[in-house]
Design a protein around this nucleic acid. Structure first.
Length: 684
RNA sequence: GGGCCCAUAGCUCAGUCGGUCAGAGCGGCCGGCUCAUAACCGGCUGGUCCCUGGUUCGAUCCCAGGUGGGCCUACCA
């Protein structure tokens, strides 16, 4: 009896584009869902955009469009990006929908009826100019502890301390700069402590009778909060706020985190209506008699999914999650994704250069069940994909299928006796993969596939069918049939990760039925005729990866990826001490880059036309061509040494010098001022 | 400030309830082969298992402290 399984991935926020970090989760979830389907489970993937909240409101305002227009644009883009990565969701809905509203209101009403909603006044910073209460992130000021200026309202990025926005020194609205005032407002709260018993039961470890699958680290983490005492959760916001109005509370809106997870429910509701499935059996099954509910999330939102969410669902009589699977973050080159380094790669940018399969494989080959961060090492990415997929697996298929086609009439034979060990081992491995996928251990599953490829390649090489004479054609046929058979087994294992690959193998081997884990190990009948070889994967050209990085750079240092940290060059000794008078001789000015162009015949030089405001324009040559594309400099406000004696160069006269820092020619950073600076202004 | 997680060969990772546990794949080097997508096969190379103490007959694995990285710290999404 197939289980009814509902899987979700976190809802991407409609405020931005899909990037590689989103894809890590999407791919992990998709692989899980596809694997469960291959195991015969009735598994659906319910998904949506998360659309509400202050950032959406403000972004739309800034762009001069309505929030609805903004989220519609994101919705199209998100679905296209995920679709092109072969993410096989059943529905990609939106939290800004009647279905989500319906259930958010239902949950709220149920909680209110049980006394789970209370109200009280809150004092918050309010910007009179923008006419809105300011979320923590929208207030800036100096840190109350270390006095660092320009810190957000919740925590200091310099000293790490946390505090309330009202504690900030010299606070100002980060949108318009106005000094905010303190205002009172009524807010609605969920007293979470009322749900402590329910949460403890939901969080209980299996050995204590718990029935929620959580990674031990996650369980412990959440339990800390429970032990520390559950506080009330503020679920209302004041306008202007893009979201759902709270029924019975005029002028109040649901906090985005109240309705965001309800988007899982809304999506299911919509899908059930569209395809005629029974909604209640999914979400109105508090005992989970019929449904398994699995959420895949990043480690940043554990709090919402393992505390508020089960409490809400339980209180309102909905199905509670049977499993919350938490993954780590994606890093690129061992560091957080960075726009300047070009490692903040959008899904679309990747797709412009490479097929989705490689990224799907690489992520799946590194993902296990822990919350460790996953690193996308670009060199390793190329090496790993090429070695595993191309050299090992695709080549096995290629050499065997082509041999059978070109010399043996395309007809397979029976698997020979001397391959029985190999066959038995491969079947045992295939029998393991379902369990690995079910445990989110795709790395282990894929390793098994590669081991089969290694064994099969070795077997074929040792038996060397190409050395056999015409009288031994049947032996050659038998040997190659092992390779062809292994190709099918491998494709079955790869199928959740590389559906295109599996489909190609099914076609070219003319398999009688789509591959799955149960039938993948079956031998093809002797006499079975296979089709023409289809190319399963082409090697990645490292230049493509470099192009992705290049295209992802916002302010374009041209240098290659991770700018090889030059092994500790000896520090440059300080110059002799000077007085401020010496400094005064150096006249530094703000300059705006009007044009920039490579200099013909020079490797390192760019010719810049600078605007010094009232001081007119200057032509300056700068040796930064290896670090900056010319077009990346245009419009920037830079620092120019303006009273430097003009210098005749082979390519023209340079009337000044741009200030920049860098250990080598290809790792230069130009000093840059932000747009508020005025060209021509003296820098002191 | 508090808490949690991680740290093993050049790279990506396994592993040890403490006792041949120092491993795999990739890379590199050497050799073989030629059916195959310069692919495939073999051999070799390669690590103070982050550091310092402690417990123990014995620690990479347990404990304490430290260093480095990641995350959380509840009205940020």
């Amino acid at each position: 009896m197939a289980k009814q399984v509902l899987v979700t991935a976190a809802l991407p926020y409609a405020n931005g584009s899909i990037h590689l970090g989103h894809l890590l989760e999407a791919i992990q979830t998709d692989v899980y869902v596809r694997a469960r389907r291959l195991m015969g489970d009735d598994c659906v993937f319910m998904w949506a955009d998360d659309t509400h909240g202050t950032p959406i409101e403000l972004r739309a305002r800034r762009e001069g469009i309505t929030p609805e227009q903004l989220i519609a644009r994101a919705w199209d883009e998100h679905r296209r990006d995920y679709g092109d990565f072969d993410i096989g969701y059943d529905i990609f809905h939106t939290t800004h929908s009647d279905e989500t509203r319906e259930h958010a209101e239902a949950i709220f009403a149920a909680m209110k009826a049980k006394g789970d909603i209370v109200s009280r006044d809150v004092e918050q910073l309010y910007c009179p100019k923008d006419a809105m209460f300011l979320p923590d992130r929208f207030v800036k000021g100096s840190c109350p502890k270390c006095k660092s200026p320009d810190q957000y309202g919740d925590s200091c990025e310099v000293c790490g301390s946390t505090y309330a926005p009202v504690e900030l020194g010299n606070p100002h609205c980060s949108i318009c700069g106005t000094v905010p005032e303190l205002r009172r407002s009524e807010h609605l709260f969920v007293p979470l402590s009322r749900h402590e018993a329910v949460l403890r039961a939901w969080l209980a470890a299996p050995e204590q009778g718990g029935r929620t699958e959580l990674q031990p680290a996650v369980r412990n983490y959440v339990m800390e909060w429970v032990e520390g005492g559950l506080r009330d959760w503020d679920i209302s916001r004041d306008p202007p706020y893009f979201g759902f109005a709270i029924p019975g509370h005029p002028g109040k809106f649901f906090y985005v985190w109240f309705d965001a997870p309800v988007g899982y429910i809304g999506a299911t509701q919509k899908w059930c209506r569209d395809v005629g499935r029974d909604f209640a059996s999914y979400w109105r099954d508090p005992d989970r008699a019929r449904t398994e509910l699995v959420h895949v999330i990043g480690k940043d939102i554990v709090y919402f999914h393992c505390l508020f969410w089960p409490a809400m669902l339980q209180a309102a009589g909905y199905t509670t999650p049977s499993r919350v699977h938490v993954h780590g973050w994606l890093t690129v080159g061992g560091e957080k994704m960075s726009k300047t380094r070009g490692t903040f790669v959008l899904a679309r940018t990747y797709l412009d250069h490479l097929p989705p399969d490689f990224l799907r494989y690489y992520f799946a080959a590194k993902l296990g069940a822990t919350q460790e961060d996953i690193d996308l090492n670009l060199d390793d990415f190329v090496l790993r994909c090429n070695a595993d997929l191309v050299k090992k697996a695709a080549n096995l298929a290629s050499r065997c299928c082509k041999f059978v086609a070109s010399r043996l009439g395309g007809t397979l034979g029976a698997l020979p006796d001397d391959a029985q060990t190999l066959v038995a081992t491969a079947r045992a491995r295939l029998a393991e993969v379902g369990g690995h996928y079910l445990a989110f251990e795709s790395a282990k599953a894929l390793r098994l596939a590669m081991q089969i490829a290694e064994d099969a390649n070795l077997y074929v090489t040792e038996q060397a069918p190409w050395k056999l004479g015409p009288d031994q054609a049947e032996r050659a046929r038998a040997v190659c049939s092992v390779g062809v058979w292994a190709t099918a087994v491998i494709a079955a294992i790869l199928k959740p990760v590389l559906p295109r690959w599996a489909a190609a193998v099914e076609r070219m081997l003319r398999l009688p039925a789509p591959l799955d884990f149960a039938n993948g190990g079956a031998a093809l009948p002797s006499g079975h005729v296979i089709g023409d070889y289809e190319t399963l994967a082409e090697p990645i050209d490292p230049a493509k990866v470099a192009a992705i990085v290049e295209a992802s750079k916002e302010s374009t240092p041209v240098s290659t990826s991770a700018p090889a940290p030059t092994p500790a060059a000896p520090p440059e000794p300080l110059q002799p001490e000077t007085t401020i008078d010496d400094f005064a001789k150096v006249d530094l000015r703000v300059a705006k880059v009007l044009t920039a162009a490579k200099v013909e015949g020079a490797d390192k030089l760019l010719c810049l036309q600078l605007d010094l405001g009232p001081l007119g324009q200057r032509t300056v040559f700068s040796g930064i061509a290896k670090s900056y594309a010319p077009e990346a400099l245009v419009g920037k406000h830079v620092v120019v040494y303006a009273n430097l004696k003009p210098r005749k160069m082979r390519f023209g006269t340079s009337e000044g010098m741009i200030l920049a820092a860098g250990a080598s020619d290809d790792a230069v950073t130009v000093l840059e001022l932000d747009g508020r600076s005025v060209p021509g202004t003296r820098i002191s």
